[in-house]
Design a protein around this nucleic acid. Structure first.
Lengths: 367, 367
DNA sequence: TTGTATGCGTTATCAC
DNA sequence: GTGATAACGCATACAA
């Protein structure tokens, strides 16, 4: 049964199985060392090897050493798929994000992944381009893969998302929003209040004609919340936001620049522009520069996100610092705890402070 | 055996097993429908259900319909972990990238993921912060997870990386470089030639004092290759690149700005600065603007990557357009083919064209 | 503390 | 074309 030397036969079968070898050669791995081989080498049971592998309690130091020696000796590497099937955990969570093209999301994913690694957890990502049907579909495949947990952006989702998550008892977290709903635990920040502060800030500077450039709000509660914040402040000041002062464009610098042209082409151009995100604001800043419109003397501009570039723009951009990295870290820690059985707080709100820079100033005297 | 109604018992065990239910409640999923249940419902064998699921050939239309009906009826969802164990494929590949904080990498990952989805393949990502030991470690965990393929950035890796990949017969691809090594199949682009072109372009404009700002070259063959390209062109012009004209800084706008200060503080400041990537160049551009150094009249600046912002800088940045999205797509297609048994070409080179904009101009007369 | 035996839910290899 | 049934490699309830 025990072969002379190097021949650690994968399966302790009753007799030589001729096809065995041929198969192994065709297959992805040639005669891998199995947990069973380790058990044999160490002279212990497979259960003990498994215990050592999983750092289970109640294993004697002596046994542990023996097993670890055997593992090193044979260069054993546990099979993740078998582990997953038996333990019902794959050691990875899934993240559903609208896109990775937006640096604010890739920043969050980056820190999420770094933090998960500490907990020995991998990250499976899927993007859905702000299409909620695609999001649902992507979630289905992630769930089918067997992810141990899921993180979502925002609270705009198809109803089936929640149904699926709950039916599978899958730990999950939403992020990037602040809605207080016990059914949708979240780690995020308020998008409305900061938006309100930005608008308020401009109103205090004497601006009357505020315009807004927003991303499409369809399936994007963050964009909606920010727009709502802008509206609230404007309404509180006894004014309103006329439709022609609200421009909806897709994400992008060029799109922001385009929106600038549109707004400045109006009979009564705004004296301040509130942008739904920094990238749009960058576009406005650049277009203004090209058009010879000086910021903030002739026009005030605000962003939302505080991307690394924001402080380097000319002039530096007044914006809201979104805690993308902190969200990544806290989501990782919380989801891991949640997978471990701890019920997380239904809602954790992080700061998204106003960052006053030089792109905003008093309303021009001419107005 | 067959329960009255809703009770699709997960296992057709001989008798009631009291613990069964308790366990199920504790566990992640409550009485999931299994492939076996589908087989029962459809009145066929489990093998047939599996065949339908995997679109295997030689299945009658009639049987397929019956099975599909049963699947819909029961809302059956295959278990990815069991599938993975039995088929030896998890339906996901792993991507190892230095960081996702650099938009050029997140762009590639974004398109990679989008394209993989078409092939019904998921993406597992891991970052290693340019630390090759971490890269190796991360690869180990991905392999252990059972990924069906791996994509790496560059050709700087620990030897163990290749050993591991080959021992497991794991399809893999490197990217972002152009080294012609049959052992390291790659889909990338030449970093050296474009760098040479940039330097040549400046030399043709009459610049003699060229400086370089580079990212740390340790474990970063792309940075090294670009630096080498700069050097080649300069040497070809009968000049050299003195050490004080070569500044190494970490990635970042602030870092680029800092390097600008350093260089312009020299007794004989350069008349042109070649940056290892766009982000560093952005820093230079912004610092120059602040310092009142006009570009390109007093100083020429080049980047490398062609990030979306590059064309919106003032002045627009002369740079190299790195095909990040195309790499993502082609890596996806090729790796999938490779997993399917097709041997990919050892090397596919994509274009990384010079994009001439306004940040470069004739050497200032004073020089 | 350690060993035994079985389950995890598919795929795949055979026969038929 | 379809049906039994043996892997797949590990975790774990239970016994010892």
């Amino acid at each position: 049964m025990t072969c002379p030397e190097k021949n650690a036969s994968p399966n302790a079968l009753p007799a030589d199985e001729p096809q065995q070898k041929a198969e192994a050669l065709m297959s992805k791995q040639i005669s891998r060392t199995l947990l069973q081989d380790v058990a044999l080498e160490a002279g212990v049971s497979t259960a003990s090897v498994s215990r050592v592998l999983n750092r289970a309690p109640h294993v004697s130091e002596r046994l542990r050493r023996r097993v670890e020696a055997a593992i090193d000796q044979l260069g054993y590497v546990p099979d993740g798929t078998a582990r997953a099937l038996a333990s019902r955990r794959i050691g990875a969570i899934g993240a559903l994000v609208p896109t990775l093209d937006n640096p604010i999301f890739s920043a969050m994913i980056d820190s999420l992944e770094q933090r998960l690694k500490r907990h020995d957890c991998r990250l499976l990502i899927a993007t859905y381009r702000y299409d909620l049907d695609d999001e649902l579909q992507a979630l289905r495949t992630l769930v089918q893969q067997g992810v141990d947990g899921v993180v979502l952006i925002g609270h705009d989702h198809r109803p089936a998302v929640k149904t699926l998550l709950e039916r599978r008892h899958l730990p999950f977290l939403t992020s990037w929003h602040a809605k207080d709903d016990p059914k949708w635990p979240c780690i995020g920040f308020d998008n409305t209040a900061p938006a309100r502060h930005l608008a308020h800030h401009l109103l205090m500077l004497g601006h009357h004609r505020l315009a807004v450039i927003t991303a499409p709000t369809d399936g994007n509660d963050r964009a909606r919340a920010r727009l709502e914040g802008f509206r609230q402040a404007i309404a509180a000041a006894g004014r309103d936001l006329p439709p022609e002062y609200t421009v909806t464009v897709n994400y992008g610098i060029a799109e922001g620049a385009q929106a600038f042209e549109t707004l400045m082409g109006l009979e009564e151009p705004p004296t301040a522009i509130l942008c739904g995100n920094d990238t749009l604001a960058f576009g406005v800043l650049l277009a203004a520069q090209r058009a010879g419109v000086s910021i903030p003397e002739e026009l005030s501009v605000t962003g939302f996100d505080d991307l690394p570039q924001a402080r380097f723009m000319s002039p530096p951009l007044t914006t809201i610092a979104v805690p993308a990295n902190e969200i990544g870290r806290q989501v990782a820690d919380t989801l891991i705890a949640s997978i471990g059985g701890n019920t997380p707080p239904h809602r954790r709100l992080l700061d998204a402070p106003l960052v006053l820079r030089q792109s905003t100033g008093p309303v021009p005297p001419a107005s």
